[in-house]
Design a protein around this nucleic acid. Structure first.
Length: 576
DNA sequence: GCCGTTTTCGGCCCGACTGTTTTCAGTCG
């Protein structure tokens, strides 16, 4: 059983317990446990099999350890089954309605016997909800409006999509003269692969002017809330955007606070408490009985952390995944930046399903100040994309030779994205692969195979003497397609044993490997290659999304292979 | 449910906003 499957069971436990009005800290313990498992690079199942003591994991105590073991061994969780007898799973859909939390949802379920969004809609239309204690006409209207949102699932959007909105809104807000400082906080700032909503933070004195301006943004369809310091709107796309207005002396504290993550902040504020301090969005304060809190810091984020004798962590690391072990600025790894990349080793041309020629891709890469690229069209198995057979591939490589002859200070590598066949083995013969500079092995077919079968296929590719790297090793498409059932730990071990690399595919829908697994690869010393997988000139611009993910994994330039010149990169790979 | 060189019990981050409340509970981030 995969870590994320066990995590999902814990999340469900948390939802159901919360619905029942259980101790909120007990609920949190399950959520923390879920998160711990999702962030864990090792397979929890193998830890159980090896008889490891799971309670050594932070946030996993005796009880959760037993539940994990039970899930691994039996595939089910007795306590969860019992809870589901008391509360039908379908009511959890009610919790997805904005403004409807566990308490109100429980009342609706108990008093009106409602178990689905459809039931709830009817009840609202019949004005039954407003009759309940603690409810009113406004609440009922809000719920009705929220049902549509809940049915649309409220899916998190790609970071890249959020970034487009951020750029436009940032520019728009900057037009207001009342705005002195402007930042975007939240999961966007931490560079998470998906973003649920946007948190804009403004330093201004004339709050009303900023809020009026914000509300007049052309994409705004609804104002959800507006108070003295906080305003929330919904855009036509359904995306919620929050705006906080704070004074200069609180800007850093608010930025720290709203950047999160929640888990990071819980730890930080716990530390403050131990010191008799309090951290909130207004600053760091000394708390004294019977006296007014004394403001200590808050102008910049660095000031806030300095009060705790901590360095100012890069936002990408603020997930409570070990960043607090870095006590000094010099302890923090120097995270990779876009400028560190000097090559891109995965892209397509008109020879298969790309939109541009080799020369056009070269020109575009040069504009982006890269020093080399690999042309890696599909192999013949990918018929729909016009994949190349041996003859066409060799013809393309002749073309690459001619292009290279025309170039100074730029190198085009002879590459191929060669399919790993369903039955195992590579789509092109070894003698052809041996002639390539760079061979990507990829799974495109048979993605639904059983764990053992697909794992064996990928390991087989890593054992091929001419393969350089495995691309998008899990095959997931964020919000669209689950990853293969592949045993990634086994794949990584095979990469180590065979001296191969793994890809971090920078396409915003892929970002594959993800941050947790990139971090694991780093632990194992497997160099990561950040590639665009571009199918057009514009496709080269996705590299920055890969960089975000790499930073979240704590990768430095050294951990990423294509920060090196080709001559040095080549030495990282065992071929032949 | 987790955690602990002050604790094995009693804590567990903190504040804004809304609606239905006459003083606060629920929700959200």
């Amino acid at each position: 059983m995969e870590n994320r499957e066990i995590a999902a069971q814990f999340d469900k436990m948390a939802d159901l317990l919360e619905f029942q009005g259980a101790n909120p800290f007990r609920v949190r313990a399950y959520r923390n446990g879920s998160r711990r498992l999702q962030d864990l690079p090792d397979s929890i199942e193998s830890l159980v099999t090896q008889g490891e003591d799971l309670t050594k994991l932070d946030g996993i105590g005796k009880d959760l350890a037993e539940k994990i073991t039970q899930l691994v061994k039996t595939g089910t969780l007795q306590q969860l089954d019992e809870l589901l007898e008391q509360v039908p799973e379908s009511v959890l859909a009610l919790l997805r309605i904005p403004g409807l939390g566990p308490k109100k949802a429980a009342v609706i379920y108990k008093e009106l016997g409602i178990e689905s969004l459809a039931d709830l809609r009817t009840a609202c239309q019949e004005h039954k909800v407003r009759e309940l204690k603690g409810f009113g006409a406004k609440t009922e209207e809000g719920i009705l409006a929220g049902i549509d949102l809940a049915e649309r699932a409220g899916e998190r959007i790609y970071w890249a999509t959020a970034d487009e909105v951020v750029q436009r809104l940032r520019e728009y807000l900057s037009e207001s003269k009342a705005v002195k400082q402007l930042e975007v906080a939240g999961s966007y700032r931490r560079g998470r692969e998906t973003v649920g909503d946007l948190d804009f933070l403004v330093d201004a004195t004339d709050t009303a002017a900023v809020m009026d301006h914000f509300g007049a943004f052309s994409d705004v369809t609804d104002t959800i809330a507006r108070g003295d310091t906080k305003m929330s709107v919904r855009l036509a796309s359904g995306l919620q955007v929050d705006l906080r207005v704070v004074p200069t002396k609180s800007f850093g504290a608010a930025l720290q606070y709203f950047t999160g993550s929640k888990e990071h902040n819980v730890v930080l504020r716990g530390m403050a408490k131990d010191r008799g301090l309090k951290i909130n969005e207004w600053g760091v304060f000394r708390v004294a009985e019977g006296e007014e809190d004394e403001y200590l810091a808050g102008k910049t984020e660095a000031d806030v952390y300095k009060q705790m004798d901590l360095p100012c962590y890069p936002p990408e690391l603020r997930e409570n995944r070990g960043e607090f072990d870095y006590k000094k600025a010099k302890d923090i790894p120097k995270l990779i930046e876009l400028d560190d990349l000097v090559g891109d080793l995965h892209m397509h041309t008109t020879a298969s399903d790309g939109k541009q020629t080799i020369r056009e891709m070269v020109a575009a890469a040069q504009e982006r100040e890269l020093r080399y690229i690999a042309i890696t069209d599909h192999s013949k198995r990918v018929t729909m994309a016009g994949g190349l057979d041996s003859d066409r591939l060799r013809t393309q490589w002749d073309e690459v030779d001619r292009v290279n002859d025309e170039l100074d200070d730029f190198l085009v590598l002879k590459g191929i994205e060669c399919d790993i066949l369903e039955k195992g083995g590579m789509d092109l013969p070894d003698d052809v692969l041996a002639e390539a500079d760079w061979v990507i092995a990829s799974v495109h077919y048979g993605q639904n195979q059983e764990r053992q079968q697909i794992t064996d296929r990928i390991i087989g590719a890593l054992e091929n003497p001419w393969v350089s790297v495995v691309a998008h090793p899990t095959g997931r498409l964020i919000n669209k397609r689950e990853r293969y059932a592949v045993d990634l730990e086994a794949v990584m071990q095979a990469a180590v044993e065979n001296g191969k690399l793994l890809e971090l595919n920078a396409n915003p829908a892929r970002l594959d490997l993800d941050d947790v697994h990139c971090s694991r690869a780093k632990q194992l010393g497997i160099p990561i290659v950040i590639n665009s997988d571009a199918h057009s000139i514009g496709g080269l611009d996705v590299l920055r999304f890969g960089i975000k993910q790499a930073r979240r994994a704590g990768l430095t330039a050294k951990d990423v292979a294509n920060t090196r010149d080709w001559a040095k990169l080549k030495k990282l790979i065992r071929r032949g």
